[in-house]
Computed example of a mutant assay.
Amino acid sequence: MKSFVLAATALVGAAQAAVQGFDVSHYQSSVNFAAAYNSGARFVIIKATESNNYIDPKFNSHYTGATSAGLIRGGYHFAHPGATTGAVQADYFIAHGGGWSSDGITLPGMLDLENASGYAACWGLSQSAMVSWIKAFSDRYRSRTGVYPMLYTNPSWWSSCTGNSNAFVNTNPLVLARYASAPGTIPGGWPYQTIWQNSDSYAYGGDSDIFNGDLAGLKRLAKG
C-alpha cells in the first residue's frame, strides 16, 4: 500500500497542479528526450516487456536516453492475462527492466491492461479470473520490489473485464486512458487517477500523460 498512499499524499493541496509526461515503445524508434524535458516534460513510461516472451527492442536505449535527459522514468508491461500466471509475468517484467528502486527517479512499474488485436476480448478470462490474475501480478511485484505496480486501463475495459472491480483502490495507483478534454468518471472506485493518458499523440513521440499533482508529488511517487 505504500506507493499508493504516497501517491495520494502527492495530490493534497495540488488539485490545480499537473506535470506533463509521455510514454513510448519501439514504435518510437528515435525520441528526443532532451527536447521533451526542455519543453516541460518531467517523466516518461517506457515499454519493457509483453507476456513472458517479449522484450521491447528499444527499451534499453529509451531508458538510457530518458535518464540522461533528467526525466523520471519507469517501465511498463503489456499484459497477456491467462497466457501464463500473473506471478510469472511479473517476474519476467522485473527481470527485463521493470524493477523499482527508491532512488527518486524510478516510477513503480506499470501493468498495461487492455485488449489486443488478434486475441479474445478480455483475453478469454471471466471477470473474477481477471481480477485474480491482476492481483497475482500485483502481489508478486509488491513482494519483490516493495511497491505495488501502477495499473493502466480505460473505463470500458475495466468494466467489461473486471466487472468494474474496486479491489485495487487502496493499493495500486491508476493510470487512466481517456482521450478527451477531461478525465471524466473514474472507474473501479478509485477517487482519482494518478496519471491521465489524455492523448495518443505527443509532440516528442508516443502518448501524452499528465501526472495529477505537482513535481514534488511526482518525486514522492518515484521515491516510494
Rank of each mutant, 00 (worst) to 15 (best):
G118Q: 10
R142I: 11
G86E: 01
R73K: 04
I94M: 07
G118P: 09
I55W: 11
I72K: 12
L125V: 09
C122F: 02
R142S: 15
G97N: 06
L125M: 12
L125C: 13
L107R: 10
N115D: 14
G124T: 00
I55V: 00
T153A: 00
I55P: 09
P81V: 07
S165D: 12
C161H: 09
F137C: 15
G75H: 04
S126R: 10
N53L: 05
W133P: 01
G146M: 14
S181P: 09
F78I: 12
V175E: 09
I72V: 13
N60T: 12
A66D: 07
S132H: 11
T162L: 08
D103C: 11
R140V: 03
D56K: 00
M150F: 10
V131Q: 03
A83T: 14
S138A: 15
P149G: 12
P155W: 07
S181L: 11
T84L: 04
Y179G: 07
A79H: 00
G82I: 08
Y92R: 13
T171W: 01
Y148N: 15
K58S: 10
L111C: 10
G99K: 07
G74V: 02
M150N: 06
D56A: 09
E114G: 00
G97M: 11
W157I: 12
I55A: 03
V175Y: 04
G118R: 13
Q127V: 01
I134M: 15
C122Q: 07
A129N: 00
A120F: 13
G86T: 05
Y76W: 00
A69M: 00
F78Y: 12
Y141C: 13
A79E: 03
S159E: 02
G146S: 15
T106K: 11
Y63M: 11
G98P: 05
L111D: 04
S160Y: 08
N166Q: 13
D56Q: 00
T145A: 14
H96I: 00
G97S: 04
A87D: 00
